[in-house]
Deep mutational scan, measured.
Amino acid sequence: MSIQHFRVALIPFFAAFCLPVFAHPETLVKVKDAEDQLGARVGYIELDLNSGKILESFRPEERFPMMSTFKVLLCGAVLSRVDAGQEQLGRRIHYSQNDLVEYSPVTEKHLTDGMTVRELCSAAITMSDNTAANLLLTTIGGPKELTAFLHNMGDHVTRLDRWEPELNEAIPNDERDTTMPAAMATTLRKLLTGELLTLASRQQLIDWMEADKVAGPLLRSALPAGWFIADKSGAGERGSRGIIAALGPDGKPSRIVVIYTTGSQATMDERNRQIAEIGASLIKHW
């Protein structure tokens, strides 16, 4: 067993022997301040990774656009098919120029040779490549099948209805392509620590998230040296922004954090800054 596999296998073990965790309302004060600064709703939840206990939450059962955070769930569904012998990570998928959609920095470079399922998941999570996500959605049967996968996990809230990039439209009061912070946090925890996926697939999923290259201005910008984070960000229309993450000190994750916002007129930089400040408060009061 590799060191990384050992780390993920012992996530519940280490967490069980940690000192009790206590909620700190100071972080919620910052979440509410972010709402004021952005002029928009902000949803927040913080779960203990081992027990699933909610440590703090704000608007945990209000719907927010998922945006690209759905790509972690998508690759979880792909990995479940791999575990069941219905898919192979090494299978190569070929596609054409007509398949390319807006923001496809990886797939646009491989029109000639195609990409493997493993490479597509890596591109979808680490670079948020939209064509990679659409190609992977095709392998599982489309958005409705991802929703069905989530329902089978016990998540009857999260739903995907459309493809990239239309799913980022974020129309107010439109339930399409949305989740709730509580539902997303619980589902992410199941994917990373539950028995739904094999140990190898859980490790692969967290490795992809740990290698995320496009979430630097968010929670990662607030992390002290030595902290662990595996995350996936999302951005959408109407001032929408979000991030889902597993993080913790001492090089291992111990909490799940989900943050979503929508309806702001603020710039992307300002949305990023507010999420980073929430992260800084979380870490300060850990």
Score class of each variant (00 low, 15 high):
Glu102Cys: 07
Ala246Gly: 06
Leu199Glu: 15
Trp286Val: 02
His151Cys: 10
Pro249Lys: 13
Glu145Arg: 13
Arg81Pro: 00
Arg255Tyr: 02
Pro172Tyr: 11
Ala245Pro: 00
Leu188His: 04
Glu210Phe: 10
Pro217Arg: 09
Asn50His: 12
Pro224Gln: 06
Asp212Lys: 04
Pro60Ser: 13
Ala182Val: 15
Gly263Gln: 07
Ala276Thr: 10
Leu192Ala: 06
Asp155His: 01
Thr107Tyr: 01
Lys213Ala: 15
Ser51Leu: 05
Ile229His: 02
Leu136Pro: 00
Asp113Tyr: 11
Asp207Ala: 15
His151Leu: 13
Ser104Gly: 06
Gly194Phe: 09
Asp36Gln: 04
Arg220Asn: 03
Arg255Ile: 05
Val29Asp: 14
Val31Ser: 03
Arg189Val: 09
Gln86Met: 11
Thr139Asp: 11
Met184Tyr: 09
Leu135Val: 10
Arg118Glu: 15
Leu282Asn: 03
Leu74Ala: 06
His5Pro: 09
Leu192Gln: 04
Glu56Cys: 08
Val21Ser: 10
Ile259Tyr: 04
Leu191Thr: 06
Ala266Pro: 04
Leu219Glu: 03
Pro25Tyr: 09
Glu210Cys: 12
Met184Lys: 01
Ser221Met: 11
Arg63Lys: 10
Glu102Lys: 08
Asn152Gln: 15
Leu38Ser: 08
Tyr44Asn: 00
Arg41Cys: 06
Ile11Gly: 08
Val31Pro: 01
Glu35Phe: 02
Leu196Ile: 15
Ile93Asn: 03
Ala230Arg: 02
Val31Glu: 01
Leu197Cys: 05
Leu79Cys: 04
Ile275Met: 11
Arg241Ser: 06
Ala15Met: 15
Leu89Asn: 05
Thr116Val: 06
Arg238Asp: 07
Ala84Gly: 14
Pro172Met: 12
Trp208Ala: 03
Gly43Trp: 00
Trp208Thr: 03
Tyr260Thr: 04
Leu160Arg: 01
Ile125His: 03
Val117Lys: 01
Leu219Ile: 14
Thr69Asn: 02
Thr178Glu: 02
Pro65Ala: 06
Ile3Pro: 14
Ile3Tyr: 13
Phe58Tyr: 15
Leu197Thr: 05
Ala235Pro: 00
Ile11Phe: 11
Pro20Val: 03
Lys213Thr: 09
Gly142Gln: 04
Leu219Tyr: 03
Gly90Leu: 10
Asn98Ala: 14
Leu28Cys: 08
Leu47Glu: 06
Leu10His: 06
Asn168Pro: 02
Phe13Val: 11
Arg189Trp: 13
Thr178Ala: 05
Ile93Lys: 04
Leu111Arg: 08
Gln203Lys: 14
Leu55Asp: 04
Ala222Met: 12
Thr261Leu: 10
Ala84His: 12
Gln97Leu: 14
His24Phe: 10
Lys190Leu: 10
Pro25His: 13
Asn98Ser: 14
Ala276Arg: 13
Gly242Leu: 00
Ser254Trp: 09
Gly114Ile: 02
Met268Leu: 12
Val78Leu: 07
Ala34Asn: 03
Pro165Phe: 05
Leu205Thr: 03
Leu49Glu: 03
Asp161Val: 06
Ala170Val: 14
Pro181Gly: 04
Arg159Thr: 09
Leu247Trp: 07
Gln37Ala: 15
Thr158Cys: 03
Arg238Gln: 12
Trp286Glu: 02
Asn134Tyr: 04
Gly216Leu: 08
Ser2Lys: 11
Thr186Leu: 15
Phe22Tyr: 10
Arg162Trp: 02
Thr107Cys: 09
Pro249Glu: 08
Lys71Asn: 00
Leu10Gly: 08
